[in-house]
Design a protein around this nucleic acid. Structure first.
Lengths: 394, 394
DNA sequence: ATGGATAAATTCACGGCGTAGATTAAATGC
DNA sequence: GCATTTAATCTACGCCGTGAATTTATCCAT
C-alpha cells in the first residue's frame, strides 16, 4: 500500500485494492456490507464482490447472517475474523519484558509480562527469557486456533535501518544485532519479524486507541520513561526519519546557565523528577505520583518545572515538525493533571502559530504496555498492506 | 505518483508508469535509450516502447539521431524536450519580487526580478506589479515557443492548507488570500497555480542543485534571511507538516537568561547579526560579509555566536527529525566559512547519535533566488507526476 | 563483399484487472 | 399477491503490462 517508486503491474493494483477493502472492513466501527465497502472505498460493487470473496476465502473476513435494515435485499455484514490471526508484539524495557498477541480486530488474545530490573543485563540471557515468554504466548494463541502472522520487538533505544540496536543507554546495551534477540522459530510468519523503537510503537498504539473518533489523527506522542522519547504521527501514520531516530525529544535544549546547556531530560527525566521532588533515590515512581496527588510542595514544583521544560521542547517540535496536538504518555500521563498546565502555557507563549491553531495537550489513551500493543499492531499493519501473503489453507 | 488511499484503476497504473518513464528520462545525466529506461525502471521493453511513444507524441520527450555505441542495432537517445514547457516560479520577498520560467530540463528560459523594499507594502499594489512582471516573463517564454504548464508563488510566511497567507511578519501581511495575488490568466495552465513557503521552495531548488550526485538526498535546509526558516527533505522529497508549517527553526529556543528565553532569531537573524557586529542600522548585509572577510573582531564574534546558536537549534532538528546533513542557505551560505565551524562543533557536542552518523554541515549549492527556482521546479514536479495532463497538440 | 553475431526496438497473443450495465436474489409495503 | 427496493452477482468490454517472437540496424570476422 506504500507508494512505489517502481513499476506498477496489475498484481500490485490487485494487492492495493485488496488492502483497501480489508482496511474498510477493519476500520469500520460496525459490520459493513459489500455495498458499503464499495461506497467507502470508491470501488465498483462488482470489484468489491470479487475482493471480499478472496478475503473470506483467506480467512481474514467473515460473513455474518444477513440482516434486513431497510427494505430491499438484506445485506451481508462483514467483520474481521477474530482469533485466527495472531500478531506478536514483544518488548524489552528497563524494568520488564513481555509479549502480547493481538488478532486482526486488535484484541489481545494472549499475553505475558515478566517484571525484572534489566539495567546492565546480559543480552543473551534476556533473549532466552524473552524467547520462553514468546513461546508460551505463541502456544496459547495457537491453542485458541490462531496462526502466527509475524512479530515485532520494541526496544528502548536507537535502532538503525538494518535492525542494529546502536545504543539503549538504560539497558546498557550497544551495537547489538536485534534480530538475534529472538529464537529462529519466531522470526518467520507471513510478514516476518521487525524491530522498532519503543516510543514509535507506543505512538502506534495511541493511533488505535483513538479509533472510535475515526479520522486520521496527527499528533506528537511523548513517551516519558526513564528517558524521554517521542514519535510524530502524521495523518494516521508514523513518520520516522531517515534512520528511524526521529522524536528523541529528551535531548533538546530547553535553557542554559552561563556555563552549560540544559536538556529536557535533565529536568523532566524520571530521575531528575525524583531528585527535584526530594524523594529518596531508588524510590518507586508511584511515590512521586502520590506526593503530587497529596500536594507536597517540592513534588508539585518539580513536576511543574518539568512541565515548563517539556513545553519548551514541544514548542521546538511544533516549529520543526508542525503539530496540532501533543499527547503525553508514560510518566507524563500519570502526572497529567499537574504537568499539562505548564506545558500548555509554554506552548501558547512560544509557538508562533498558536493564534491560528493552538497546540492541544492531551493524555495518552493507550493503556499499559502501549509499546507492546503497538508492536503487535505494526504486524497487523504489515498484513493489511499485503493481504495476499496470508496463507489461505487452515 | 503519490500513494493513493483510493482505488487504483488501470488508468492510474498507466499514469504512474508514464510518470516513472518520464522521470527516468529527466533524471538521467545523459541521454538514455528505451532499453536503458526499461532496465532502470524495471518495466518491460514492450511497455517502455509504448510509454515513450506517448511522451514523444505529447512533446515532453524528444528522440535524437540513433547512435551505435556497441555492436547491435543502434539505440535511439531520448532527451527531455527543451523550451517547450514553461513552468513559472514567482516570488515576493522582503526586498524584491520576481518571476522565473524554467523548462522541463530545469533550465531558466526567462526571468525578471524587481528590487524594492516591500516591508509594509500594500498587497494589491504588489500583486499588480507581480502580475506585470509575470506577464512579461510569460510573453518571453511564449516567444521561445513554450507553453505555460502552471505556476507556483513563493512567500516568506506561514501558509495554511487552503492557500491563505496567515502571516508574513517581515512584509507585514496577515490573513491574505494568496491565490488572489495573481491575475486570473496565470492561475490556469495544465497543472494550475499553487503557493508555498519560501524556505520549502528553496529546499526544492537545493535538491535539484545536487542532481549530478544522483541519489535521493536527505537533509535539512536552513534559509537564513531576515527571519530564519527551513525545510526537511527526506529521500529527495520535501516533507511538510500537517499545515505546511514545519521547519520554522528561527523560533526554537537556544538558551535562556534567568528572566527570559532566547530564540534562534534573536541571535542569528539578520538584524541581530548586524547589531551584534556593531554595524549601523540599515547597512546592507554585504557590509557584514565584508567585515567578516576582513576579520573585524565584533563581526566575527557575532557570526560565531550565531553559529553556535544555529548549531543548538539544528541539534534540536536532528533529534526531532533525524537528519544526516544540514545545508546552510541564504545569509548563512554567504557567511559559511565563519559560521560552519561553530555549527559543526555544537552538533558534534549535542547530538546523541553523532558517534554513528555525524551531521554534516554544507553550503547551499542552489544559486541566487533559490526559492524562485524551486517554485518553478514544483510546477515541473506536478507535470511529471501527471504527464497526461499535458495537451498533446501544438 | 558477405554472412553471422549482437543488441535495440517493435509486434502480437495472452491473461489479469476494474467497470458499466444487465440480471438475479431476497426482503418490504401497499 | 405483486410492485418496489436494495444487495449481490454475472457478463461483455476495454485497457494494461508481460513474454516470446520478430524485425531492424549495426559490428565484426572471413
Amino acid at each position: 500500500m506504500a507508494p512505489p517508486v517502481a513499476p506498477v503491474r496489475q498484481d500490485w493494483m490487485r494487492e492495493h485494492n485488496l488492502s483497501l477493502t480489508l482496511s474498510a472492513v477493519l476500520d469500520a466501527s460496525e459490520p459493513v456490507s459489500r455495498a458499503q465497502v464499495a461506497a467507502r472505498t470508491g470501488l465498483s460493487r462488482a470489484a468489491v464482490t470479487n475482493l471480499v470473496d478472496r478475503l473470506v476465502e483467506a480467512g481474514l473476513v467473515r460473513e455474518l447472517a444477513p440482516v434486513a435494515l431497510q427494505r430491499g435485499r438484506p445485506s451481508v455484514p462483514l467483520v474481521p475474523v477474530a482469533r485466527t490471526v495472531a500478531a506478536l508484539g514483544l518488548e524489552v524495557n528497563v524494568d520488564y519484558l513481555g509479549v502480547r498477541a493481538v488478532d486482526l480486530t486488535g484484541e489481545v488474545i494472549a499475553e505475558q509480562v515478566l517484571h525484572a530490573d534489566l539495567r546492565g543485563s546480559e543480552p543473551a540471557v534476556v533473549a532466552a527469557r524473552l524467547g520462553r515468554v514468546a513461546g508460551e504466548v505463541r502456544a496459547r494463541a495457537v491453542a485458541l486456533g490462531a496462526r502466527i502472522a509475524g512479530s515485532t520487538l520494541a526496544l528502548p533505544g536507537l535502532l538503525d535501518s538494518s535492525s542494529v540496536l546502536r545504543t539503549a543507554p538504560n539497558l546498557g546495551w550497544r551495537d547489538l544485532d536485534a534480530i538475534g534477540l529472538l529464537p529462529a522459530e519466531l522470526v518467520g510468519g507471513a510478514v516476518g519479524f521487525t524491530v522498532a523503537n519503543e516510543a514509535d510503537l507506543a505512538a502506534r498504539a495511541e493511533i488505535r486507541a483513538r479509533r472510535p473518533d475515526d479520522g486520521k489523527p496527527s499528533f506528537f506522542y511523548v513517551s516519558g520513561e526513564i528517558g524521554i522519547g517521542g514519535a510524530r504521527v502524521l495523518g494516521g501514520a508514523l513518520s520516522a526519519g531517515s534512520h528511524g531516530w526521529a522524536g528523541e525529544v529528551g535531548h533538546v535544549v530547553v535553557g542554559s546557565s552561563p556555563t552549560s546547556l540544559t536538556r529536557l531530560e535533565d529536568v523532566a527525566g524520571q530521575r531528575a523528577l525524583m531528585r527535584n521532588a526530594q524523594l529518596p533515590e531508588g524510590a518507586p515512581f508511584s511515590d512521586l505520583v502520590e506526593a503530587v496527588t497529596q500536594g507536597a510542595p517540592p513534588a508539585v514544583a518539580a513536576v511543574r518545572q518539568a512541565g515548563r521544560a517539556l513545553g519548551i521542547a514541544l514548542a521546538a517540535v511544533a516549529h520543526i515538525s508542525d503539530i496540532d496536538e501533543a499527547v503525553l504518555g508514560g510518566t507524563f500521563a500519570a502526572l497529567f493533571d499537574t504537568v499539562a498546565g505548564p506545558v500548555e502555557a509554554a506552548l501558547a507563549e512560544l509557538v508562533v502559530f498558536s493564534d491560528w491553531v493552538p497546540v492541544a495537550v492531551t493524555r495518552a489513551r493507550a493503556g499499559d504496555y502501549a509499546a507492546m500493543t503497538g508492536a503487535a499492531l505494526t504486524v497487523i499493519d504489515r498484513l493489511v498492506a499485503r493481504p495476499s501473503v496470508w496463507p489461505t489453507a487452515s
